[in-house]
Write a protein that binds this DNA or RNA. Sequence first.
RNA 1: AGGCGGGUAGCUCAGUGGUAGAGCGUCGGCCUUACAAGCCGGUGGUCGCAGGUUCGAAUCCCGUCCCGCCUACCA
Length: 936
Amino acid sequence: MSQTDTHADGLAKAFEPETVEQRWYAYWEEHNVFAPSLEEGDDRPTYVLPMPLPNVTGSLHMGHAMMCTLEDVLTRYHRMRGYNTLYQPGIDHAGIATQVVVERQLRRDGISRHDLGREAFLEKVWAWKEKSGGRIVEQQKVLGLSADWSRSVFTMDDGYARAVREAFVRLYEEGLIYRAERLIYWDCQAKTVLSNLEVESEEENGELFEFAYPISEADGGGELVVATTRPETMLGDTAVAVHPDDDRYKHLHGKKLQHPFVDRLVPVITDAILVDPEFGTGAVKVTPAHDFNDFETGQRHDLPLINILDLDGKLNEEGGPFAGLDRFEARKAVKKALKDKGLARGSKNHRLMIPRSDRTKTVVEPMLSTQWFVKTKPLAEPALEAVRTGKTKIIPEEWTKTYEHWMTNILDWCISRQLWWGHRIPAWFCSDCDHISVINVETLEACTKCGSKDIKQDEDVLDTWFSSGLWPFGTQGWPDETPELKRFYPASDLETGYDILFFWVARMMMMGIHFMGEPPFKRILLHPLVVDETGKKMSKVLGNVIDPLDLIHGADFETVVTKAMPGASLEEAMKKFKKSYPSTAKMGKGFDAYGTDAVRWTMCSYSTLTKRVPLSPKRIESNRFFCNKIWNATRFALPYLEGATVSEAAPPATTRINKWMLTRLSRVCETAIAGVDAFRFDESTIGLYRFFWGELCDWYLELCKPVFAGDDEALKSETRNVLAFCLERSLRLMHPFMPFITEELWHRLPRPDDSPVSISLASYPEAGVAPRDEAAEQEMDAVMAVIGAVRTVRSEREVHPGATIHVVLRHPEEATRELLTAERMAIETLCKTDQLEVQPSGADRPAGAALTVAAGVEVLVLLKGVVDAEKEAARVEREINKTEKNIAALEKKLSAKGFAERAPAEVVAETKEQLVEMKERRRLLDEAKALAAELA
RNA sequence: AGGCGGGUAGCUCAGUGGUAGAGCGUCGGCCUUACAAGCCGGUGGUCGCAGGUUCGAAUCCCGUCCCGCCUACCA
């Protein structure tokens, strides 16, 4: 049984996303539809999706929109499929990013964090976090995310902090965390070490500068010319290397060079690994403390390491006369000094890779420093194994290779950072016994070894990715064995952009397996990068950044481009923007309010197989039209649905059209489900789009019209129920993709009596939703083909759409004639005929008729007076050409050597059948040609 | 340098062995009382190039040319 009242009242003539979307989020929260259950007796399978935690500094961008949409689709879909579902939200404290933001604010007031001191500075950061942090959550709600916000975790929460310390302590005790002096990347602006992942290298213009090292007098004098891109590092040189086989320098092996600026003799060494005799002068200055290759060379030759830089990038006392200069000043000064000494030997332009901090964008310096490291090899092994054995699947699969490659060549991970904002390293140094106490407490009173109170905690904090690496279990109460941990670990899927595969996903895999004994998720789903319409990355420089909220709420282009390119002139910004999004050329003054549903649907309609998604505003617009279509289809149907019965079972259907409709519904369920399960939402959305628009609206609704206008009450009742059922199930099918409009319309449609409070708690329709009738499907295909043929003739003959025509259909088989007769109401309505005759083949053709063929049926359209003989002849000629081409292709295929013998029997049979059909068609077209000639 | 991915209709992209598809665009006709944000119809591709395997290749293999991304790196 069902609710019989429908609610067409107040349904606006067009879909207005603003008014619809506003009311439902609060409704969902009020009815708590997003929360999973922890009840003992609840034995539904769980579906857990950890949200890739946005930075506390973040605000919603197109990448989030894509990611959040895909994840919410997964979440809503599984919830509807009967899973106990948790979409775990949270926010990352984002160490460097946040500290940089707050420091920038302080600088505006003329103070540095050091002026404030650590404690006061952290208070400022917390204050900032309370005020401006987490704005993104509100924006995520606009997107409709069905996350359980009551479980949201901030990575600096006490409980999470405890988990972070615990992980550190355990790894330390297991010998997997160690402290050592290593060559690391140093960010001179943020004054912290960076892991190699946080460094981005890009090719830039530079110069290759050559200068001469004088050979010491004791070794006979003369000079050796070296080439360098960083002349200032020569102050830290402890050798010059040449290739052992290089004849030019053989006489210099083992000789000493006099350093021009400091009192140091530098040996000439031979090294076949470092030196490429073809490059530069074939002689390489070696600076082991400031270059990774030189460092290794130094290890091989036991060279001293001389650190010449302070932490802020200025030269230290080792810089001799250049001490105190900034590194870039020093470069100029060293070059000048070399020139003055007559040692400069010229320079040439040179393209080279410059490593920069991905946060501060400053050039990073390789530097020698004592830091904390994670020994990664033992952690990487099982993480590799999990993917190799398929315990965790990476989708799309092609990323598996990338993952393997990285995991196999993984370097130890530097996890300490010289920042203030973050998880303080739980290590205390004892001044009395030198012991390092590593223990999971917030504050420690005394050394755990000797009891001395003279201890000092490590000043550094942990890499943000260390804490986020614990996300799948750190959010569930670990290290305690909570009910949440038991139920929600491991997670089901991890969905994210491929750009953080190493940063985050790989680390979660390592940590999850290590601490929990099994991989943190069953599937890793990686989506593409959202780029502009021409394929370029979104950036402020290019002025092609689009705020997803502007697409949802609407915005004029002036607003949009001002945001996209702050500081640029309006004209310039507009020009760049329009170039980046050609489809906006015809969009008037700005983006309309397309609404969340249209944006979400669009995000889902791109293939996840590619690496980049070129965002097309036009596409979003057309998907809003689709929303409008859904809206109006429902608005049209509602008045006819009074008294309809909708239940969990499909309504009985006796007519071919209704059977056909239910069959198509069943098929689209399969398509939608297969798409989501395979992480191919594009296939789901395309299938649903075609079903709803191309079949339900274009055909079924049109076919319902004569039924509802007629007086066959039994037929009306059956049709009403089928229509109501198909609409209600369509909304459910589309709900994960477009939650708002489906919820709105669902509440207005007849639906089962025991329906839940929200469509998001209704079950997701599956293939068994309705019986399939393949005969009905095939027969309707034929009927639709016939209708299409008549319409084509009408259109090409320029028959006014309002005019009625006389149609004769002929077929040799009784069964087909019965079919056409039975569906005459459909044909008459959709072809606008005033006279429809179904006849056996063979009779004489009426004069003045156009003849065409569809599904083997001769279709005669009587067009006395309106027919242009020439046009008709041309049309027939075109058809004949096409048919003959087909016949030729089929005959060629059939007669090809080996086809009959080697091809599967059914393919041969099918081809023969097609040929027979084509030949019959050809024969009828000849008659059509004769008819056309009669007209003349 | 290595790895990965891509080159299919004017544009953006689906399509992993059986005579090429969608959306948008374009062209023609319609304000047919759900929707002009709409309806009906048409147009449009030798699937980057060259070989090979196969009865049959957009699809599998080899080569080649472009484009993109990632990793590493010449001082």
